[in-house]
Design a binder for these strands. Structure first.
Length: 192
DNA sequence: CATGGGATTGACT
DNA sequence: GTCAATCCCATGC
């Protein structure tokens, strides 16, 4: 997948990433859940403008934006839209494919469905850290590759984003229909 | 320099 | 269901 794939509206890229394969070292998984973020809405880190932290978001598309959440977890995003626009797709869940044993060790022997069912979980399982921030998703240590031809277009469900406190009304979360590997089921109210 | 908040998770009641 | 852990960084004095 080339840079042009990412230099498009973030909502399109978020949907098109569903079903793609994400690989880091010996571990890989199929993307089953994403969320879109854009500098026009306050839930996006880029909403506040360009700072040292958000510089990656406004930079070249096709790069990784990795940041630490709640002081504990790394979150992996794919930077989208042309340079100068602050937008990214958060990778929220994977269906494990390769390196499952290593993922289980890193995660502490969780069940298969719990290995990558959340944005903090999948970075832990794949060994992605803040050092991967700004790395190139088209040729770097993290690679996202197209879904196989003939697998057909996946059926995608749309929902509200999870875990945010602003712009909660936007339905910018995309899930592979009926996947067992989502961070949460579709169609429930996120957060009590 | 001090402070406060957050795109989460997991342990506990 | 509730709640703490823990750190990066934006903001304000």
């Amino acid at each position: 997948m080339d840079q042009k794939f990412y230099a498009r509206p973030v909502l399109e890229v978020a949907q098109d990433l569903i079903g793609c394969l994400l690989t880091h070292g010996p571990c890989s998984g199929v993307i089953v859940e994403t969320e879109a973020y854009h500098d026009s809405e306050p839930a996006c880190h880029a909403f506040i403008g360009v700072t040292p932290r958000t510089e990656t978001l406004f930079g070249a598309p096709g790069r990784a934006y990795v940041y630490r959440s709640y002081g504990v977890h790394a979150m992996l995003n794919a930077v989208c839209e042309p340079e100068g626009v602050g937008a990214a797709v958060l990778i929220r869940a994977l269906e494990p494919v390769d390196g499952i044993e290593l993922m289980a060790v890193r995660r502490g022997a969780a069940k298969l469905t719990g290995l990558c069912s959340g944005p903090g979980k999948l970075t832990q399982a794949l060994g992605i850290t803040l050092a991967d921030n700004r790395s190139d998703l088209t040729h770097g240590s993290i690679v996202i590759s197209e879904r196989p031809d003939g697998s057909g277009d996946p059926v995608i469900q749309r929902d509200r984003r999870i875990g945010i406190t602003k712009a909660t009304e936007l339905e910018w979360r995309f899930c592979l229909a009926d996947s067992r590997f989502l961070s949460r089921p579709v169609g429930r109210v996120a957060r009590a």
